[in-house]
């Protein structure tokens, strides 16, 4: 049987934990950013759009290094975090989540924004004439209508977070049990002598997790789309 070793279980758990935290941050902020980009008009909008999409076009190492400079003990944000909250995210799994979240963010924003732009604002107007305040319009009309986009964005961001490598290894290094997620563990095994079998097993695990996520999202979005049609 394909029994998982403690090393593999640790890597899987860490990966899920990192990706989960990354999603938790990405989802509300992605929604906000998508809303601003889809619905608001202001000076400097294309600059904001550019900054949000930067991780998509930059080499991940660049993002990782920038994070290191910002959040390291000597970095501006890192020092502030340490002095006010006694928290340091560099070289910890939380840092890995930040790196994964930033890399996944543009994917999340893109798909939410696309579905937001498809929402007929006339329906939102109708809801207001029926007594819904803007907050309730969002909860009862907009949110249900962008659910497919939200779901797609979440799955894409989740997949991107699980696979994050370059920014992570640059920012938080490759520490077993702390920052050694699946791809990093796989990388270590490919560098070690006699690591072939272990590496292959991690490959299989990655494929299974990825496929499961895709199939689940496909099934979910089909159900949602049936409801909307």
């Amino acid at each position: 049987m394909f029994a998982l070793t403690p090393f593999e279980i640790g890597a899987i758990q860490l990966s899920l934990k990192v990706a989960g935290l990354a999603l938790l941050g990405c989802l509300p902020m992605g929604l906000l950013a998508a809303w601003v980009l889809a619905r608001c008009d202001f000076y400097g909008k294309s600059l904001l759009n550019g900054v949000i999409h930067l991780p998509l076009v930059l080499p991940p190492v660049v993002v990782g290094y920038l994070l290191l400079v910002l959040f390291g003990k000597q970095g501006a944000l890192g020092r502030w975090l340490w002095e006010t909250f006694e928290v340091s995210i560099a070289f910890s799994w939380k840092g890995a989540a930040v790196a994964a979240g930033i890399m996944a963010f543009p994917l999340m924003v893109r798909s939410i924004r696309l579905s937001l732009e498809l929402v007929d604002t006339g329906l939102e107007d109708a809801a207001r004439t029926l007594g819904a305040s803007p907050k309730w319009v969002f909860i009862t009309v907009t949110l249900p209508l962008i659910l497919p986009g939200l779901l797609t964005g979440t799955i894409l961001a989740f997949a991107r977070s699980l696979g994050e490598f370059g920014a992570t290894i640059t920012f938080v290094s490759n520490i077993p049990g702390e920052t050694q997620t699946l791809p990093l563990a796989l990388y270590s095994l490919t560098q070690a002598p006699n690591g072939d079998v272990g590496a292959l097993r991690l490959v299989v695990i990655s494929v299974v997790i990825g496929l499961a996520a895709l199939i689940a999202s496909e099934a979910l979005s089909r159900r949602i789309n049936n409801r909307l049609r």
Partner: peptide, 15 residues
Amino acid sequence: APEKRNIGYVFQEGR
């Protein structure tokens, strides 16, 4: 605000 006016609105396209 429109939601506090208590005015019903039937739109051309139903909505």
